[in-house]
Simulated assay, not measured.
Amino acid sequence: MALTYSGKLYRAINPVFAREPMSGRGAERYGGRFNPKGVPALYTSTSVLTALRESNQVGDLQPTTLVCYRAEIDMVFDASDTAALTAAGLNEASLADPTWRDQMIETGEAPTQRFARNLIAEGYNGLLVRSFAKGAGLGDMNLVLWKWSASGPSRLELIDDEDRLG
């Protein structure tokens, strides 16, 4: 069952890409756990701490630009709905599988990427899913967006009232 997410979202970005906090081009170029190569995506979190954990998963804390969005996103798949997840042929262990990159290299598309492709084809704008970053708990959530714009049904607005990102 689809849900609507309404609230703030956070993203910790490498400063090299900070001037384009709405692009999704990095994920499109390299692919991510929940987007195959060629599909733009914004990986956002529902809390600041989760966003920092997500962007700094290896080694020490690196320079990071933190951004915040106002969001009103319709058609979000809730990965905590175990019945819906099972119907899609997955479970939490398969979502958390740390070998997704290897699978992507070996077969061209990891199961989590295929899952995302199917959700997109079904009209979903995003996926609400638990964070699997080191130190994340059950309540640390990410919202992966595949469709977003300045207006509905997948409205995302960067909060930059002082135009700090130019």
Score class of each variant (00 low, 15 high):
A51C: 03
F115G: 06
L95R: 00
L127R: 05
M104I: 02
P63L: 04
L61K: 05
P111F: 12
N118A: 14
L127C: 09
V129K: 07
R114Y: 02
E122C: 10
G89V: 09
T64C: 08
A121N: 11
Q113G: 03
P98H: 07
T64K: 07
D81G: 04
V58K: 07
E92V: 14
G126C: 09
Q103N: 05
Q57A: 13
D74A: 15
V129M: 10
F77L: 07
L85F: 07
Y69W: 02
D60W: 13
R114V: 13
Y124A: 06
A83T: 15
L138P: 03
D78V: 15
G135L: 00
G108M: 06
E109Q: 14
L66H: 00
V58I: 15
R101A: 06
D97Q: 02
P63V: 00
R53P: 02
C68I: 08
V129H: 05
M75G: 02
R53V: 07
P63N: 10
E122Q: 15
L128Q: 02
L95C: 10
T65Q: 13
M104C: 01
A51L: 11
A84Q: 08
D81K: 02
W100R: 00
S80R: 14
S94G: 09
R117K: 11
L85H: 08
T65E: 13
Y124P: 09
L66V: 11
E72P: 03
L128N: 03
A93G: 07
P111Y: 12
D81Y: 10
G126H: 10
V67A: 01
A83E: 12
T112A: 04
T82V: 09
A83N: 02
P98G: 00
D81E: 10
T112W: 05
K134W: 11
Y69Q: 00
N56I: 08
L128R: 11
A87F: 06
A121T: 09
K134E: 15
R53Q: 11
G126Y: 01
C68N: 03
Q57M: 13
T112K: 11
